[in-house]
Simulated scan of single mutants.
Amino acid sequence: MEHLHVAMVQTALVWEDPKANRDLLASKMEQLEGEVDLIILPEMFTTGFTMDPGSIPADEGQRTLDWMQEQAKKYRAGILGSTVFIGENNRHFNRLFFVGPDGEQEQYDKRHTFTLAGEDKEYEAGKKRLLFEFRGFRICPMICYDLRFPVWSRNTEDYDLLIYVANWPAPRIGAWDALLKARAIENMSYCLGVNRLGSDQNGHEYTGHSAAYDCLGNTIVFSQEEAILQVVLSQQHLNLNREKLQFLKDRDHFNIQR
Rank of each mutant, 00 (worst) to 15 (best):
K127Q: 15
F149H: 11
Q235S: 02
Q31N: 09
I173L: 09
Q71C: 08
Q230D: 03
N94Y: 06
Q105S: 12
D250W: 08
N94C: 02
I185C: 13
A211F: 07
P53R: 12
R196F: 01
E133D: 05
E30D: 03
T11E: 10
K249F: 10
A212S: 09
T113P: 05
G103K: 13
A117V: 06
D59P: 15
A20Q: 03
A7V: 00
H237Y: 03
D250Q: 12
A20E: 05
H204M: 10
L245D: 11
A170E: 01
D214W: 00
A58H: 04
S210N: 08
E133G: 08
A117L: 05
T47W: 00
E186M: 03
L32V: 02
V14H: 11
E106N: 04
I143R: 00
I220Y: 02
F149I: 09
M51D: 04
D37Y: 06
T11L: 14
M142Y: 08
Q230E: 13
I228W: 03
R258H: 08
F137M: 14
D200T: 09
D146M: 00
V231E: 00
V36D: 03
W152F: 08
V99G: 00
L65N: 01
R183L: 14
N255M: 04
E2K: 04
H204Q: 12
Q257A: 00
L161Y: 04
I56F: 01
V36G: 15
L131H: 02
E106M: 13
M8G: 12
P171T: 04
C215H: 12
R129L: 14
T46R: 05
L25E: 05
S153P: 10
L65H: 10
N202A: 07
L179A: 09
A227Y: 04
R138D: 00
N218S: 00
I185Q: 13
E157I: 12
E30W: 03
E2I: 04
E243G: 06
R148A: 13
L240S: 15
Y108D: 01
L41S: 15
V194C: 02
L41E: 14
Q31P: 13
L238A: 07
R242C: 10
R242M: 13
P42V: 02
E70D: 12
V99I: 06
G193K: 05
L131P: 10
R148D: 09
Y159N: 01
P150Y: 05
N239K: 13
A175D: 01
G48R: 12
Q201S: 14
E43R: 09
L96R: 06
Q105M: 14
M44H: 00
L38H: 07
G126P: 15
T64Q: 11
E88V: 02
S82I: 04
G78L: 01
M8L: 06
E33A: 14
K128P: 14
F137N: 13
R63A: 14
G34Y: 02
Q246L: 13
R183Y: 08
F114A: 07
L238T: 07
H253W: 11
G118K: 06
E186R: 07
L96T: 10
I40C: 08
L216H: 07
T113L: 11
W67H: 01
K19H: 04
T64Y: 12
A178F: 01
A12F: 15
N155S: 12
I40P: 07
L197S: 07
R76C: 15
